Amino acid sequence: MDPFVVLVLCLSCLLLLSIWRQSSGRGKLPPGPTPLPVIGNILQIDIKDVSKSLTNLSKIYGPVFTLYFGLERMVVLHGYEVVKEALIDLGEEFSGRGHFPLAERANRGFGIVFSNGKRWKEIRRFSLMTLRNFGMGKRSIEDRVQEEARCLVEELRKTKASPCDPTFILGCAPCNVICSIIFQKRFDYKDQQFLNLMEKLNENIRIVSTPWIQICNNFPTIIDYFPGTHNKLLKNLAFMESDILEKVKEHQESMDINNPRDFIDCFLIKMEKEKQNQQSEFTIENLVITAADLLGAGTETTSTTLRYALLLLLKHPEVTAKVQEEIERVIGRNRSPCMQDRGHMPYTDAVVHEVQRYIDLIPTSLPHAVTCDVKFRNYLIPKGTTILTSLTSVLHDNKEFPNPEMFDPRHFLDEGGNFKKSNYFMPFSAGKRICVGEGLARMELFLFLTFILQNFNLKSLIDPKDLDTTPVVNGFASVPPFYQLCFIPV
């Protein structure tokens, strides 16, 4: 058959498939802009700032609406009420993970971030239990974070109060905490193996944040037939998995079943207990991918939040002064901060919360999916439909947070200066898919920041009023603009 005829037939089939998918069930789905064949609503979305586009569309179609990214149908949730109703009140029905062709290629359905069903539930339950087990290797997770915080302070001392970009050092600290939990080992910041790991993690975040990856996920045929950065992403992930597998083999040879040292040991012990169960989800494949998931999810998000926190503290020296006064009063100079201190430091706690609220790190979270046909607000959402959640619409709700575009710790303080919780605080998402490392991340943010401010004054290279804190939105995360500062020993 003539190649031209084959091409026309293929394009015609794709067009018909697109029209059929977009028209099927439209009477039951939430409203939304009319999609174009094949490309859907992509032309109506700013790929570099999806969150802003969703906010604009919500003003037209309401808090629940339908979009098509290519052939992929998505239902968008915008605003606290619908997000709570879906992710919390109907948590089980909305607990699936959205379709990610690239991740599915890399992870093969294993791990904790992109798995679904029984596998996801069992691996998540085990990971939560293990991360909360403060007795691994007779050292609590808090001990590990405190140790890394001391190392971080010593690295900052080496800058000798000269101007520096904190990106690298602030990236090393949370990565080392995860390494300590998974591998029972922290690395020197100049260790070549550690630097290679950091390089792969950072490069992957840069790649994932590009519009090209959005295109690959919406048109998965590209993955096999086109060159691009997605190939580098898959190569980096394969490198990390190979490295983790080597460490798993080392653990198998040296493990003491009665004295687990780290996450890998705990997983291997669980595998041993379930070795007679042919349906067990505790396999080497799941261990390797879960460890890679924890490394990827637990490094860049925390380091970016820390980097943004220091920029905001530079911009608002009056806030920094209040935090340091609270540190001096509650902790002093002669001991290290600990998590028990947080309950006695409402202002510092409010500042950490406000940093996370203000920066809105992951504006749309990772997409969910419905696990069955769901009736939601008089609409029928078919099983498997991807759910896109606007966390921006919750964290920047102007009824809950007056002047949401302003950095103001009073958003989390009552009139008496006591810490005030808010149900709208969802930087880790909400419901059954809430970030498994939430507790660890909150511990790291509090301890790293208090250790830094206990030991250093922060000095800006320019007038604080002239510092730009506008986030650089890159399609996946909101990151701070480049800046330098000086760490002046107190």
Rank of each mutant, 00 (worst) to 15 (best):
L77R: 00
I387E: 00
I39S: 03
I362W: 11
F407S: 00
F126P: 00
L395N: 07
G417Q: 09
G437C: 09
T389S: 07
F407D: 00
G79E: 02
P33G: 00
Q252E: 10
I178V: 11
V436G: 05
S209K: 12
L71V: 14
E155C: 09
I178E: 02
E142M: 07
D2K: 10
S180Q: 12
D341W: 04
S51T: 14
I39Q: 03
E326A: 01
D143A: 12
L195E: 13
R119S: 09
L458H: 03
N133K: 09
T371Y: 05
C179K: 04
N133E: 14
P317M: 06
P317A: 07
T364Y: 15
R333C: 10
D243F: 15
G98V: 08
Y347S: 01
E142S: 08
R186W: 07
N116S: 11
P402T: 15
E203V: 07
P363F: 02
Q278S: 13
D341Q: 04
K322S: 10
Q356A: 06
R73S: 07
F428N: 02
G431L: 01
I488A: 12
E253L: 15
F412Q: 00
Y379F: 12
P404A: 14
L361S: 05
I327Q: 00
S393W: 00
L388V: 15
V370E: 00
G137N: 09
H353Q: 04
T385Y: 02
D2A: 12
V436I: 15
P220H: 06
I112A: 06
A309M: 12
L445W: 00
L413Y: 08
Q324Y: 09
L311A: 06
L195V: 15
T167D: 04
D256F: 04
I141L: 13
E415S: 11
L294N: 00
P33K: 01
R261E: 05
S140Y: 08
F4P: 00
A106C: 07
I362K: 13
G91L: 01
E246H: 13
S303T: 10
Q454V: 01
V355H: 00
V145M: 08
L391Q: 01
V330Y: 07
F187C: 08
K138C: 15
P31M: 05
C372D: 10
E203N: 07
